[in-house]
Amino acid sequence: MYDNVVDSSRDMTLLEVLDRVLNKGVILVGDLVISVADIDLVYVGVKLMLSSVETMEQLKDGKTPAEVKRIAGTSDEF
């Protein structure tokens, strides 16, 4: 799929994605509903550990997040 083993351009781990889309990028200004700049990545990180490989696989299989949540039995509390 890739040029070589190094060129894993789309094979980005969720942690790396979140690190960028939540922690980096342009600082939020103006008429915004919300800034997610203050979200504690550690908190998100810990939660990621609870998100099983199975959940990821279900997402890849095209199930909606709501369906996955129902299957996994996760609650809003965790």
Partner: peptide, 25 residues
């Protein structure tokens, strides 16, 4: 999905965050 309250709530929903963050990137 994206009002302040609902968005904050959704950020606790890892599959939702994963799907949307990956799509964003």
């Amino acid at each position: 999905e994206f009002s302040e309250i609902n968005f904050k709530k959704n950020l606790s929903d890892i599959p939702w965050v994963e799907l949307n963050a990956r799509q964003h990137v």
